[in-house]
Design a protein around this nucleic acid. Structure first.
Length: 624
DNA sequence: AGAAGATAGCTTTTT
DNA sequence: GCTATCTTCT
């Protein structure tokens, strides 16, 4: 068949995976079910493009959903192609930048394009990236200035409206055409002011990174052609999670005459509808690209037959979905364990004791994950784990980059890099306290002038320093250590966090890259380091991961499925998919637990077992 | 200006 | 039950 490729790109692939790898030209859709070897297929495909189609690594665009996925793909591709990975452990981002510059998330790829094209699109090269927190602070500020009552019109809802508009590629003027009702009128006012302030600050928020890139490509044929010619092959992973702006971006980056576009995904695992993801992108692919070849990876290598069958019952009622069915050659395995606890604490007790007994059978701590719908559920679990002395790792609850001391340090760096960033200035002006309150800032009192002079001197003094040196200079200049280390355990943890930030900074030799990294990297991205421990995280965070034994806690009506989904069919479908994602993380054992009463708003409330349990065929369940 | 205390308001998920 | 925000006091 393809003799030269035999020894490299096709080894160890099943028929469907192999067909998908060999279909290198034209539009291609790969439905990749949970545990079906998607990453393997994608990385082999990339290696095949390089080896057999003579594509250069720099000509392949591969978009992933998280930075972690990007790193993992990059590592495996380089391995397949026989690159030395000696530097990988210490500097993965450096190695990636060098060999695989176009493997990353939509956001990181857009930043790369925007920095390269900044001048020709009227953007400052040193623009700041606002994370959701920054956006929200700015929106709060604007709401106050516009004398809108933040109780009646909550900043997060207004932020959601603005984000939604940007996901639909609507500028304030574009959005104005669709506005109806008082709330949207106000949101539009805020949106206008918000955009003005972002521009003043030379800042882009997350949504702008996509939006502005799309605009740049739309409005500048030269730029568009440049990238269309550069990218011989484009691949998009987790295609079911793309939003409309990302869809538009994708179509702008491919050459319509030779659309070597390969999208990979699974509509069953579409769980980000709430933030604009549109799984119709994957369902309509054949319509958008009539020449598309479609492949389905349906053999699952991860789970037992029982787990897959159970998951099929939960996903079954979803109305809009592509026809496909996972199967496996794996063993039938034990039934799915269901446990009805009387309350949240005994639910946690059960999980702990079950983990203990399995551990006695030879499992290690890291074989276990406890998944839940809402972060609030982690508290009780954590409490019991702590009391029982089980090692655990909490993913996502208190994000590293959202810690005050970390944000302070980053705000200093951001302000040094971009003096127009008033939001960062507001943050650092009084850190540590130096008598500059909100009043002084708005009136520009002498203390503020002195502070600005001090920072300006610091900026000059530290020109050309590495991120690590810069941080050290700042800490010294403002005596930050003394400020955070108050002798309490909290102070100690603050010091540790700053030290961790210093360690991270040491991996970068340029401030721009460092700030870009911290702006775009999430907690899930760097969760895997650390000791042998049980993983606690939300169902959302678990996507893409696998564990020998998985507990899904809180299978109660109103929690999973969540309260907000009970009324609305589309949202209920998303809850199903979310539960499905959680169940298909399990390799050998799956537990579904619930509490008959749970503390809500401070008081115990009786609960009703989740419909998802009732829907699974009894023969697959073992009630204990 | 800043810190302590009181209160309200909220709880889905996050690149 | 928690926290983020507001109020009051120093």
């Amino acid at each position: 068949m393809v003799p030269t490729a035999e020894k490299s790109a096709l080894v160890g692939l099943n028929t469907a995976q192999r067909d998908a790898v060999l279909a290198s030209e034209g539009p291609v859709l790969i439905f990749a079910g949970a545990g079906s070897g998607k990453t393997k297929c994608l990385t082999h495909r990339l290696a095949y493009l390089v080896r057999e189609k003579k594509a250069k690594l720099g000509e392949i665009l591969l978009v992933t959903f998280t930075n972690k996925a990007a790193q993992e793909m990059a590592r495996r591709v380089l391995q397949l192609l026989g690159y030395p990975l000696t530097n990988w452990e210490r500097h993965p981002s450096l190695v990636m930048r060098r060999y695989l510059p176009w493997v990353g998330t939509f956001h990181s790829i857009c930043v790369r394009i925007l920095r390269a094209e900044a001048e020709s699109i009227g953007l400052k090269r040193n623009f700041t990236i606002f994370d959701s927190d920054d956006s929200l602070s700015l929106i709060r500020q604007i709401i106050k200035e516009l004398n809108i009552d933040p109780k009646q019109y909550q900043p997060p809802s207004i932020a959601a409206v603005i984000s939604g508009a940007k996901n639909e590629l609507l500028s304030p003027d574009g959005f104005a055409r669709y506005v109806s009702g008082h709330f949207q009128e106000l949101a539009l006012q805020v949106y206008r002011q918000y955009q003005r302030r972002l521009i003043e600050a030379s800042a882009l928020d997350f949504d702008d990174l996509i939006f502005v890139t799309v605009k740049a490509l739309e409005d500048n044929p030269k730029i568009r052609q440049k990238y269309q010619q550069l990218f011989r092959y484009v691949m998009v992973d987790e295609y079911q999670d793309t939003n409309n702006a990302q869809y538009r971006l994708t179509t702008l980056l491919i050459d319509r005459k030779a659309p070597n576009l390969c999208v990979v995904g699974d509509d069953f695992q579409s769980i980000y509808g709430w933030r604009g993801a549109n799984f119709n992108n994957i369902l309509n692919f054949k319509h958008d690209f009539p020449a598309a070849q479609i492949f389905k990876l349906e053999q699952n290598y991860r789970s037992t037959k029982t787990i897959l069958e159970g998951a099929a019952f939960v996903i079954g009622p979803v109305r809009r979905k592509a026809a496909k069915k996972l199967w496996t050659e794996n063993e039938i395995g034990p039934p799915i364990t269901v446990y009805e606890a009387s309350n949240g604490y005994s639910e946690a007790d059960f999980i702990v004791s079950e983990i203990r007994s399995l551990r006695a059978l030879g499992y290690s701590w890291s074989d276990f994950a406890v998944l839940y719908r809402t972060n609030a559920q982690s508290r009780v679990l954590e409490e019991i784990f702590l009391a029982e002395g089980l090692p655990y790792r909490l993913v996502g609850a208190v994000r590293f980059y959202e810690r005050r001391e970390v944000k302070d340090m980053l705000a200093f760096l951001r302000y040094l890099q971009n003096p127009a960033d008033q939001l960062s200035l507001t943050r650092i002006a009084n850190v540590p306290p130096r008598g500059i309150g909100p009043r002084t800032i708005s009136t520009g009192g002498p203390k503020l002038v002195a502070f600005l002079a001090e920072i300006e001197a610091l900026r000059r003094r530290t020109a050309g320093q590495t991120p690590l040196q810069l941080l050290e200079s700042i800490i010294k200049a403002v005596n930050y250590q003394k400020y955070i280390d108050d002798g309490t355990p909290e102070g100690e943890s603050r010091v540790e966090n700053v030290e961790e930030l210093l360690n991270l900074a040491g991996e970068f030799d340029n401030l721009e890259q460092f700030l870009e990294h911290v702006a775009l990297v999430s907690d899930v991205d760097n969760y895997d380091r650390g000791a042998d421990a049980v993983t606690l995280m939300t169902l959302h965070s678990s996507k893409g991961l696998e564990f020998t034994a998985v507990f899904i806690a809180g299978l109660e009506e109103g929690l999973l499925p969540h309260l907000r989904a009970l009324e609305e069919e589309n949202e209920m479908d998303e809850e199903r998919r979310l539960c499905y994602v959680g169940m298909t993380r399990a390799k050998k054992r799956l537990y579904l637990t619930l509490a008959r009463s749970r503390i809500l708003h401070g008081g115990f409330t009786a609960t009703v077992p989740s419909r998802f349990i009732r829907e699974i065929d009894e023969s697959l369940l073992d009630w204990v």
